[in-house]
């Protein structure tokens, strides 16, 4: 549904995006993750034909962005970085306006708008002027605008920015629903928690280049190394007592806990437990230590080598 091939963009000799290649299949959700100025918005603008690539090309919904820009725009819903609304217009008139620009008939627009407004908890505010809306409501209206013509591909730039937690959850649920309805979704974000919740795949972009790409689990495994196990002991122990006989090497430890990495927990963990029992140390818990996407992101963005990797 979205396929890019060496996509690049230069502005006055400055490289904004370079050699971006990825693919998002139908019904999948890709989160483009990166710091401000990394090239996320430029990539989306190229994919929506607002900017012409200076190198490479891309296909969106089966249409080439350079050769068939109008067809691409017809099949894409875009939530722009800023909501970009007409403040003197009532919300429902705004949706009617954009629905007509996408060639929808008025009854269809009304029906679709009513459904979406209700889904986003905006039905009561539909006839109010947009200027009276809160920031969150404006963002929701902009998302409804992007979804109004039921496009097969959606590109959402920071969809939950300026939203309270409840509204953000409503929007996230709506995005996941879109994916479940076989829409292809590309989300630009620097919200790591959100990316982890939404993404089938994450592409981390920095200085205009994709530097990591994969599912959240794959990225963690690849970039943070083998699973990190944490053992909590019933009583404090010193280093001399904690002789694990070379089964694993301890990564970190405290008086009553220690951590180790293992590529094969099914084999290693029972051996560790047996050894601790042999040492007379009672185990309270043995569990997988949490490894956040934030750690992955920071590691990748700062250019540090992944843990457990040469």
């Amino acid at each position: 549904m979205i396929e890019t091939d060496g996509l690049g963009k230069r502005f006055n000799g400055l490289t904004a995006v370079a050699d971006v290649t990825f693919e998002v299949e139908r019904g999948k959700l890709l989160v483009l993750l990166g710091p401000n100025g990394a090239g996320k918005t430029t990539t989306v603008r190229m994919l929506t034909t607002l900017l012409r690539p200076t190198s490479g090309t891309a296909w969106v919904a089966g249409f080439n962005i350079t050769d068939e820009p109008s067809a691409v725009r017809r099949h894409v819903g875009l939530l722009t970085e800023y909501p970009g609304l007409y403040h003197r217009m009532p919300g429902i008139d705004y949706l009617e306006f954009f629905g007509q620009l996408y060639g929808l008939e008025s009854p269809d627009i009304q029906a679709r708008a009513s459904t979406l407004l209700a889904q986003f908890g905006m039905a009561q505010a539909a006839r109010r002027r947009i200027g009276e809306y809160s920031k969150g409501m404006r963002q929701k209206l902009a998302i409804i605008r992007a979804m109004l013509h039921n496009p097969p591909v959606l590109m959402l730039d920071e969809p939950t920015s300026a939203m309270d937690p409840q509204s953000a959850k409503t929007v996230r649920d709506a995005i996941l629903q879109l994916r479940d309805d076989h829409h292809t979704v590309l989300v630009c974000s620097h919200n790591l928690a959100e990316a982890e919740i939404l993404a089938d795949r994450i592409a981390i972009i920095r200085h205009g280049r994709i530097i990591a790409d994969g599912s959240p689990a794959d990225l963690k495994r690849e970039l943070l190394g083998d699973p990190l196990m944490e053992v909590r002991l019933a009583q404090p122990s010193d280093d001399r007592q904690l002789d694990l006989n070379g089964i694993v090497s301890v990564q970190a430890s405290g008086s009553d806990w220690f951590r180790y990495r293992t590529a094969d927990p099914h084999t290693t963990n029972p051996q560790v437990l047996q050894r601790l029992a042999a040492l007379g140390l009672d185990v309270v818990t043995l569990s997988k230590a949490p490894q956040s996407l934030e750690e992955v992101y920071l590691r990748v963005v700062s250019g540090r080598a992944p843990s457990g990797k040469p």
Binding site: R73, T80, Y82, G84, L85, Y86
Partner: peptide, 14 residues
């Protein structure tokens, strides 16, 4: 200036 241009430009209009 009002940032409302981009949604208009992304419509399929010539």
């Amino acid at each position: 200036e009002r940032k409302s241009l981009e949604p208009l430009l992304v419509t399929p209009l010539a």
